[in-house]
Design a protein around this nucleic acid. Sequence first.
DNA 1: ACCTGAACACCGTTCAAGT
DNA 2: ACCTGAACACCGTTCAAGT
Lengths: 197, 197
Amino acid sequence: MGHSRTDVVAAALRVLDEQGLEFCSMRRVAAALDVQPSALYHHVPDKQTLLALMADEMVSSVRGSGPAELCRDLRRAMLAVRDGADVVATASAYRLGASAVEARLAELLRERFDDMTPWEAVESARTLLHFVFGHTQSTQMLLQAQEFAALAAGRPADAAADPPGASRADLEASFDRGVAVILAGLAARLEVVSASG
Amino acid sequence: MGHSRTDVVAAALRVLDEQGLEFCSMRRVAAALDVQPSALYHHVPDKQTLLALMADEMVSSVRGSGPAELCRDLRRAMLAVRDGADVVATASAYRLGASAVEARLAELLRERFDDMTPWEAVESARTLLHFVFGHTQSTQMLLQAQEFAALAAGRPADAAADPPGASRADLEASFDRGVAVILAGLAARLEVVSASG
DNA sequence: ACCTGAACACCGTTCAAGT
DNA sequence: ACCTGAACACCGTTCAAGT
């Protein structure tokens, strides 16, 4: 009875997680569905759109009760899939503002800083997201490099004692500090604005 | 007498600026030098390395007397070449820490915040750079979309009256605010640390 | 040292044709 | 509606061979 768009996105995410972005080609996604490459174009107009749908799927579970929680949740969702941070960051850059996560984050920022204008909240959300994407891409690349090195050295993939300051826990702490710095900066700036206004 | 590595990088930057990253293939760079594609591999081991060399060349002029000035200067350098922000951001993500700009920014941050440890300075530099790359990529993509729309509408490419809040000046002001927020956050956090320590 | 020519193993996308 | 088969116009990279 044939496949649906949902099947295509799911298969693409499987290929991405198993083989990485470099090898996540239309042809391999088609092969994963036991279908000719051209069949994909019945469900999706082009590869860029497929990648955007994959990004939406990856972040669909991201909620968050506050700005910092949402950032952590987004990070977790991206790290859950191989090269997920690259896919989400790129897709997010392409449709500036059309993102549900950005809107949700802006909303949470207005709850936290109740004198923020809607536009200030959106701009602040984007500032936070630039950091979240950048830091998470770095994290993911570093973790993959460590896995690769561990495998090449014949060690089990989860062996400890990697470069100092680059353990999973260190990277998470660094991420949290970055988010805290930006939130502190937003708080400080709003005080300046309201003091001088 | 043949070409040098410098020639290859220069030709690649010309192709990038004229045709965009999508069309900046090894084959087109070779054509720009009137040479077979395989000849490039005498000067450069692979495309990834060539892109990194192009990124280095683009940011080679970036100095800056303070953190904010360096960020603006880096932004300017990336915007000067078509898709420059993508190339520099990607190359920079690949060699975490091996960047001269990152080291210079960390140095400037230690001058500004003289109680920062070297590692805090590096981490703070990276936080700033995540924002600088992300915001500049967004800016460049938006400006290119505007140029495209203007061309498609038959208007001269520099016509005014584009979407509100997205003029060159608005984007620059937004960028400066983001940098200021992060610097304010760093200042605020350091106060907390020294007050509690 | 620097380059050519030819090949290899891929890409994304289109499109007529089938069921 | 969903898919096949075949093609088109590309990729990055390797390698023997030339000068």
